[in-house]
Design a protein around this nucleic acid. Structure first.
Lengths: 188, 188
DNA sequence: GACATAAGTTATCAGGTGATAACTTATGTC
DNA sequence: GACATAAGTTATCACCTGATAACTTATGTC
């Protein structure tokens, strides 16, 4: 049993916890993501996790805040942002997209308020400012409504997953719908 | 303590349980809706509830199946179905709309499969047949994606709730978007 | 009116939950 | 090299979860 003892590094540990938490919340939702399971996935004990983040709700807020970055998607050709957003949300390698966590935590009474606040501050707010023009906030909300439900239907409910043709069709529709909302900046 | 004993009526009891279950699932999601709480709301003991529905998953399936009726919404003027759907989903008195339960249970591993099956069979399938034309299933899915996300944002996240003007704006957009999907039957 | 049946109850089980207290040990500093 | 501190652990608490066993009692039928 003389295994070399574990290296101690608080920053790395916190990062591992956040990553494990994001995966868990995005896969099984807030209520079903257990603190012990997350801790185990991060190779740490659950009391340690709680010392870093205070409570399960605290961990969720930290994980969500860390995950909701729209990282560079608002840079580049404005005419192509619909496609960029869909690509971001539908990247099979990146399972922890903002809409995924929003979708799976919006239902939980404990997580709702946190999700609402973080989403407004870090996603809808910035995106609305980027959009600009009249009704920017409402239009930003519409876009993330679409994206969130897309995640529910394409990732959680096998309705689409079972039918790749349907998924393609709906992805295209989504990108086009988002683009239309972005482009309508002149009117209303 | 000589209160008149409780009338025994299995059918009425089952109906009360279903109603209480629908409310609970729609309000706090599958995971957080406790069998005891539902039983109490239905004025019955939890073992009785389990005898009628077998398990929590069984209860969920029954409650969902009973709730997802599109009751008459597919009758009437085809040009107004967008408004009828939004009215159905946004009726403050009817809190147990299909999208509400879908939205709040899609995240849970235990509820996912049930939600997918029941939704496909009782909502998307029939609606797609009503829609008709090419890509009917994909278009029906798009419509319920829209409706589901609307519920998440308008009922669960205070982003919209706190801002009635924004809610009006988004309701109108939703009705119009649904109508557009319905009307495109000729093309593609 | 006895009786079988179904509707209902209470008591309880085994396991999982978030959280806390108390303890150990690695690590950088003087 | 002693030592304070922070990083980590194990053991445990109080509570809630779905589910089951065993018991009671209302109700319709012959």
């Amino acid at each position: 049993m003389n295994t070399t003892p574990k290296r101690r590094n608080a920053e790395q540990t916190k990062a591992r916890i956040l990553l494990a938490a994001q995966k868990a919340f995005a896969e099984v939702g807030y209520a079903r993501a257990g603190i012990r399971d997350i801790a185990e996935a991060a190779d740490i004990s659950s009391p340690m996790l709680l010392r870093y983040f205070g409570s399960k709700a605290g961990l969720f807020e930290a994980a969500l805040t860390d995950a909701v970055s729209l990282a560079g998607v608002m840079e580049g050709d404005r005419k192509e942002i619909g496609k960029r957003l869909v690509a971001l949300f539908n990247d099979p390698q990146q399972e922890i997209t903002p809409p995924a966590i929003i979708a799976l935590s919006a239902g939980d009474p404990d997580a709702r308020g946190i999700t609402a606040r973080v989403t407004e501050e870090h996603v809808i707010g910035p995106f609305a400012r980027w959009l600009g023009g009249p009704g920017a906030e409402a239009r930003a909300t519409e876009i993330f409504m679409l994206a969130t439900s897309f995640v529910i239907y394409s990732r959680q409910l096998p309705i689409i997953t079972n039918n790749p043709a349907r998924e393609m069709e709906i992805s295209a529709w989504l990108a086009q719908s988002i683009q239309a909302i972005v482009d309508e900046s002149g009117s209303a």
